[in-house]
Design a protein around this nucleic acid. Structure first.
Ligand code: ZN
Ligand code: ZN
Length: 817
DNA sequence: AGCACGCCGACT
DNA sequence: GTCGGCGTGCTC
């Protein structure tokens, strides 16, 4: 009898593949384990077993697996189910989901290495130039990688040369598999058991009079043992005895000491756990009770609490309850909100029960977190993480909290799977019959709509913690101010007075400048030319920190030119104002105060962000200018004034969510003001103070905003009334993209009629030398999602078989944000 | 996604 | 005439 397995490979192919295994392997392998398999000519991948069976493939011979990689499944049945859901719903392959879901260390991939052929003799003179170069390099290096060979011969296509050398028996090639996860091993030391008896030990010490250093080490070992019964690390002993590794080595060699190894986790919490959690305020407690009550009838609850209302404490109470029931908890946050501030706050509550899962952690740390969740270790009972944390192997999930649920960064944009972590979390919760709390001060329209429709529970917390008042928000009409000449640079007199007042009181100020649309570009005053990216359809933006012009899309950069590239004029200006411009103006307006800037530039580097935050917290910075980054959950106590430099560029963004997002962003930024007793002040500069959204922002009218916006969504056929799927065609040839997307749109229109928009070029139509063109399909509520997707897939398949369109990549984005 | 096979321009 | 460019198609 022969045995087979079906596997998922971490590549964008729709099929599962079948490999052959022997009887022993069949008895051992289970779905969720990894095997190393050869795929194609030589490449080796880690594949994930989905099924063990005995049905031989009919039309091909299945290859044998290389070897088994796991002793037990690393992926649970629930996860495989979730992967299936994601690949169906978001229209991508399971391989793509696998790639996104598994920590990098689980995805081994082989690399071809070149070795010299020791056995054969050959005539060096028969080698061609490039062949000889490789041969020569192998005399000095035991192995070469493909990349190194490319460097040696100075060209990209090196496979023919390598092939010739194999034929001439000069070299051999091998597939090297990267070492996967490396457990961290710590060396410990203890006294050899021979000397546990008192007299043996005394004899030993007597004989050691001529080795004072070794004797000293032993004495320190005894002291350490006396202090606590825990194992003693080699490093610890070296340090306390002020000795060296050599001395220890000698003692081990003499069999006086024994060295032993223990595997340990890289991330360990050592702090104290504050026993008593913070007392909830009356209103917080009421919200907590309401959420619990809502869970009796509904699985998902929207927790709408204004900024600074203390939502986190309510979450903490809910988490504690889940912990008591021995359930696992997942706490999802947007990446930017996952600050050290918040992590240490939660650590005080949950101590070592808290695990952080974050892309900035090393691959090994992530594997450890994965394993701890999988084995239900208590140290991973509460997991806090950004969107990818939904992929962890929970076995007993009881509660998911999605904080700042309105944030669009929960949606992965590129590459596939283009999933929304909030929506996927709800599906995940359903598998475990777990409860979900969606928290936000400014819920997404979709979420609030679901709550209004009674699909989700709704709990509101309208008071700030400690009865701090909501900030006082005022709109400043800069159109009038410009006309009346009451503007200084980008500052209205109102805003300047506000800043002066705050600084006089020793309070801090935050100024918000939207990132989008206001990157500083260089423009020639003579001919109007501004330098463009050669690969993308955008102007290069000026970065003063390196005096460079850069492209945001492809990373292309050049030194800041001294004269216009078109007309050689030296009269160049930087146009558009970003945070840098504001910072510069502030330095002139307030020379006696420290100005800080928080944007992509100043927060780069591992601790860049934290550094600037703590400077602000410590009062080292008086005025902070920043982008979006400022709006996220940071708790600055001493900020009394928040200024929004220009609200209009937010509102005018060409996207059906622009108004909703502007409201959310402005409310969040405004929420940074006056978090303690004194009422905070917010000034919003705009050319259009009568704009409905701005009016609603100024009076904290979320529900007014909701009513207006939901009406517009309804009228213009947008979510939550219609689902949308965006289809993008990509190719380096402009005409081919045009024709291809026209064909696609026409085919879609044949089925979906007026519910197809486009094709249309996006604002930036060329990125990395690829033209993009979008089609949007709107799906009305009665229309079957699955059938719609089937149609899209079918049309896509026909599309692929058309010769003229070959090479055009089609990207499908479900629930495009 | 890789990676091989296969067909056309430009350099020894 | 070969070398190397990339378009086409398959991978258990
Ligand atoms: Zn010019
Ligand atoms: Zn570019």
């Amino acid at each position: 009898m022969s045995y087979f397995i079906n596997v998922i490979l971490p590549i964008p192919l729709d099929k599962e593949f079948t490999y052959s295994i022997n009887k022993t392997e069949a008895a051992f392998l289970q779905p969720g384990m990894r095997v190393a398999v050869q795929f194609g000519k030589s490449k080796i991948y880690a594949a994930l077993v989905t099924k063990v069976h005995q049905n031989p493939p009919l039309v091909y011979e299945a290859k044998e697996i290389e070897h088994i990689l796991d002793e037990s499944p690393i992926v649970t049945q629930h996860q495989l189910e979730l992967w299936s859901w994601i690949s169906n719903y978001y229209m991508c392959t399971k391989g793509e989901v696998m790639r996104a879901a598994l920590p990098g260390a689980f995805l081994l991939e082989s690399e071809t290495i070149i070795l010299k052929n020791e056995k054969s003799l050959f005539d060096e003179s028969l080698l061609k130039d490039d062949e000889f170069l490789i041969y020569e390099a192998l005399q000095y290096q035991s192995l070469l990688r493909i990349q190194e060979v490319m460097n040696i011969v100075g060209k990209k296509n090196v496979l023919p040369v390598i092939k010739r050398l194999i034929e001439k028996e000069v070299i051999t090639v091998q597939e090297e598999i990267y070492e996967q996860y490396k457990p961290k091993i710590v060396r410990y030391i203890r006294l050899n058991t021979t000397y546990t008896k008192e007299e043996a030990l005394r004899d030993l010490l007597d004989t050691m009079t001529r080795a004072p250093k070794q004797r000293k080490v032993l004495m320190h070992l005894f002291t350490l043992q006396a202090q606590a019964t825990k194992p003693i690390k080699v490093n610890e002993l070296i340090k306390t005895s002020n000795s060296s590794a050599a001395v220890i080595r000698a003692l081990v060699d003499k069999n006086i000491l024994d060295e032993y190894h223990l595997q340990t986790d890289r991330v360990q919490y050592t702090g104290e756990v504050t026993e008593n959690t913070k007392q909830l305020s009356e209103y917080q407690h009421k919200a907590y009770e309401e959420i619990k009550h809502s869970f009796e009838t509904k699985d998902v609850c929207l927790f709408h609490g204004v900024t600074s209302s203390g939502k986190t404490e309510v979450y903490v109470k809910l988490i504690e309850q889940a912990i008591q029931k021995e359930e696992q908890v997942l706490y999802l946050l947007p990446e930017i909100a996952l600050t050290t501030q918040l992590i240490s706050r939660l650590q005080e509550y949950f101590g070592e029960k808290l695990t952080v899962y974050h892309s900035k952690y090393s691959v090994n740390e992530r594997v450890e977190a994965w394993n701890n969740v999988k084995t239900k270790k208590s140290k991973a009972q509460v997991v806090i993480g950004a969107r990818s944390a939904i992929f962890l192997p929970f076995t007993n999930l009881g509660l998911i909290i999605v904080d700042e649920e309105h944030e669009n960064t929960f949606k992965q944009y590129d590459p596939a799977p283009r999933y929304h972590a909030r929506d996927t979390a709800i599906v995940l919760a359903k598998m475990f019959c777990a409860k979900v709390v969606l928290g936000s001060a400014t819920p997404a329209l979709e979420t609030y709509y679901n709550a209004r429709q009674k699909k989700y529970g709704l709990v509101q917390l309208t008071r700030r913690y400690g009865d701090v008042l909501m900030p006082d928000i005022n709109l400043v009409d800069i159109k009038t101010k410009y006309r009346k000449k009451e503007m200084t640079g980008h500052f209205s007199d109102t805003l300047l007075t506000g800043i002066h007042d705050a600084l006089k009181e020793g309070e801090q100020v935050i100024l918000f400048q939207n990132r989008r649309g206001y990157s500083p570009v260089v423009e020639c005053n003579t001919c109007g030319h501004s330098p463009q990216c050669p690969n993308c359809d955008v102007s290069l933006t000026f970065h003063s920190y390196r005096n460079q012009l850069r492209c945001h899309y492809c990373g292309y950069h050049i030194a800041m030119p001294q004269k216009c590239m078109a007309c050689d004029s030296v009269d160049l200006t930087t146009k558009g104002f970003g945070t840098e411009q504001i910072e510069k103006e502030l330095q002139e307006l307030f020379p006696d105060h420290n100005i800080g800037r928080m944007d992509q530039d100043t927060t780069r580097g591992k601790h860049g962000y934290e550094k600037i935050i703590s400077r602000f917290e410590e009062g080292d910075i008086d005025i902070m200018v920043g982008t979006q980054m400022l709006s996220k959950g940071l708790d600055f106590r001493n900020v009394s004034l928040v200024g929004i430099m220009n609200a209009d560029n937010l509102l005018n963004f060409p996207d059906f969510r622009a108004h909703e997002r502007s409201f959310q962003l402005m409310q969040q930024v405004a929420g940074r003001a006056g978090r303690t007793k004194k009422r905070g002040k917010v000034l919003i500069q705009t050319y259009n103070p009568f704009h409905q959204i701005l009016q609603q922002v100024s009076v904290n009218d979320y529900s007014g905003m909701f009513t207006d916006q939901i009406e517009e969504r309804h009228q213009y056929k947008y979510p939550p009334f219609y689902k949308i799927i965006k289809i993008t065609g990509k190719h380096k040839d402009y005409n081919r993209v045009n024709e291809a997307t026209n064909w696609l749109a026409k085919s879609f229109r044949n089925v979906f009629n007026e519910n197809v928009l486009g094709p249309e070029f996006p604002p930036v139509s060329r990125i990395r030398n690829q033209y993009h063109k979008n089609i949007v399909i709107k799906i009305p509520q009665g229309q079957s999602l699955n059938k719609t997707k089937e149609v899209i897939k079918k049309i896509n398949t026909s599309f692929k078989s058309i010769k003229e369109f070959s090479g055009v990549r089609v990207i499908i984005n479900v629930d495009n944000y």
